[in-house]
Design a protein around this nucleic acid. Structure first.
Length: 551
RNA sequence: GGCCUGUUGGUGAAGUGGCUUAACACACUGCCCUCUCAAGGCAGCAUUCACGGAUUCGAAUUCCGUACAGGCUACCA
């Protein structure tokens, strides 16, 4: 086919495309950004929600763009209707909003490089494909699904490479007459790349995280435009990222095999190749096997899971940061006053292999997160969470705000704050003694200890209780009280002569603790008593007696 | 079948030819501290980096093979 025929073919195939590529090249000029600024993008399908792996990807995108004073944009990749869900775009935005990952440009906030929804860019893709036809780099292919399946079968038998290439690309040299004929007879077709590659040649590319990778050159005539005129991922990626001036394509490493194809497309179209950053998949171990985190099987793969369970968003982000860069965690441990934004992430500290998703670690990070928060902050955040997930508790929290903050602040001023909460949902349980109404309702039902506590001793003690002392003075008093009542003043003494005592101070405190909090473990007892006040303490003694049916 | 990539402890990993008798963190175990718990302190937890060869005075680090795992091989992304 000569140039004249190719021009005719282009018109035959795309009679409605009246613009040429220069129009778009001018419409979307180079971005005016500082040196080293990265332009990144997140391209989800509108499936209605963000998957953990995508969240990780978008987190990378936003982090690298932000720290280089670049641009992070969101492009909805809806070229496959099967993957689209009604209002699916809203779901994506909601999940990203929840994690405070805010694109600089998107279909919602706009931008100069839109539209940011691929289904609205069909004309653009077709314009470039029309040009490719003229250049002889693309052609209509009329092969049916059955024909392709047959070829595949033959290839499997011959144990050769699968796909449409070389001799298998039957329609690549059809004449203009033949094409006109088929079209006039209503035959359906796709537009395929007429690959100039030879798989005997080698291409080498440098991936920002994986380093140098060598591939055979692409020789596959992959489809560019589907039967309905819609682009495939490959075409859309190349054209969009060129026109939107993406500098770093950050995507999952399931895409590395397509690199030879993509660079070929960039070259043929005369575009500058972007940097590629292929990130390792987040995996999960199940029955000894490692597999990708699945949104079907794994609740933790759904990004909304964390809010439901009560793990703070920021804790999840901290975890994402620790898996993004292996040196982040150590840095953060030494700079707990800093935030993720203060750390400079690099590509060479990214994992090459798969990263196992570790809920234990997330929990730990979350505990540390809570431990750094003031009582007020924990209160506000917990209230906020409870309003969405535990309305009853939210109401109680609001009614008991003042005291609750005091309880949540116990031992917060020390250099080594308590780490007893990892989720908002833990607060209700851990501080069950803090809200009177809840305490009365739940009573001592959760007490697992079968011991019979000496309630009379407690009653005797309360008569002498002074809530105006310092913690040290108070504890001295408890020791004295213990000794006067046949208990050792410390554990060591008791161990020396266990028969000489009824127990030791610890045992005495346990009585108080159980009666007052309904638990065998709690933060500092004296602080709790001070907040509760003498009347409440007495009430709880009566409650305990009633529970144990004493008198 | 073909093409890519990976393989360091229970887990995430540091490590880029000698500083490694393999960092750090999570988990676990023990002890200490202690009114309980949490936290904290100390100690233990891979004599070895999937396996086999090669290069080298010297290799977890380079090369080659094998095994295993993952990805791609769609008119899905």
């Amino acid at each position: 086919m000569n140039q004249e025929d190719r021009n005719k073919l282009a018109e035959l195939l795309f009679p409605n495309i009246d613009k040429d590529r220069n129009y778009y090249e001018e419409k979307y000029p180079e971005r005016d950004l500082p040196d080293g600024a990265m332009v990144t993008r997140f391209g989800p399908s509108p499936t209605g929600f963000v998957h953990m792996g995508s969240l990780f990807g978008s987190f990378c995108d936003s982090v690298f763009a932000k720290q280089s004073n670049g641009i992070f944009f969101l492009r909805i990749e809806d070229t496959d209707q099967k993957r689209s869900v009604e209002n699916g775009v809203d779901g994506i935005f909601n999940d990203l909003d929840a994690f405070d990952i805010i694109p600089d440009e998107s279909s919602r906030v706009g931008g100069n490089y839109g539209p940011y929804i691929q289904s609205e860019r069909t004309e653009i893709y077709q314009t470039y494909v029309k040009d490719l036809i003229k250049q002889g780099y693309a052609y209509p292919c009329f092969m049916t699904e059955e024909e392709i399946a047959d070829i595949r079968e033959e290839q499997e038998i011959n144990k050769t490479k699968l796909g449409i290439y070389g001799v298998y690309a039957q329609d690549r040299d059809l004449s203009l007459d033949e094409i006109e004929n088929k079209i006039s007879q209503g035959e359906e077709y796709v537009i395929r790349l007429k690959s100039p590659g030879n798989d005997k040649n080698e291409v080498e590319i440098v991936d920002c995280v994986k380093g140098k990778i060598k591939f055979p050159e692409n020789d596959m005539d992959i489809v560019l435009l589907k039967k309905d005129g819609t682009p495939t991922y490959h075409l859309a990626h190349v054209i969009d990222d060129h026109l939107m001036h993406t500098t770093h394509v950050i995507r999952g490493d399931e895409w590395v095999s397509s690199i030879p194809l993509h660079v070929q497309l960039f070259d043929i179209l005369g575009f500058k190749r972007p940097e590629y950053v292929h990130t390792a998949a987040i995996t999960k171990k199940e029955n000894g096997n490692i597999r990708k985190l699945s949104k079907r099987k794994d609740p933790e793969a759904k990004v909304s899971y964390y809010d439901e369970v009560g793990i703070p968003i920021d804790a999840v982000k901290l975890y994402l940061a620790t898996i993004l860069n292996s040196n982040f965690e150590e840095w953060y441990l030494q700079n707990s006053d800093k935030t993720i934004d203060d750390f400079t992430f690099t590509f060479d500290k990214m994992a090459i292999g798969g990263t196992l998703f570790d809920l234990d670690k997330l929990n730990n990070i979350s505990k540390t997160y809570f431990s750094h928060k003031s009582g007020e902050d924990v209160f506000e955040e917990t209230l906020n969470w409870a309003k969405r997930h535990d309305k009853e508790y939210a109401k109680l929290l609001e009614e008991n705000k003042e005291n609750m903050i005091k309880f949540l602040s116990i031992e917060k001023d020390s250099a080594r704050p308590r780490k007893d909460i990892s989720k908002y949902s833990d607060v209700r349980e851990e501080f069950s003694y803090a809200i009177d109404e809840l305490f009365i309702k739940e009573n001592y039902s959760k007490l697992t200890s079968e011991k019979n506590y000496d309630i009379a001793l407690m009653e005797k003690y309360v008569e002498t209780l002074n809530l105006k002392q310092t913690n040290e003075e108070w504890f001295e008093g408890v020791k004295e009280f213990s000794v006067n009542n046949g208990y050792a003043s410390n554990n060591k003494e008791f161990k020396k002569a266990p028969d000489a005592y009824k127990g030791h101070v610890g045992d005495v405190c346990e009585i108080f603790r159980v009666v007052i909090t309904g638990r065998t473990a709690s933060p500092d007892l004296y602080s709790i008593m001070q907040i509760l006040g003498i009347d409440k303490i007495k009430e709880r003694i009566e409650l305990y007696k009633k529970f144990k049916e004493i008198d």
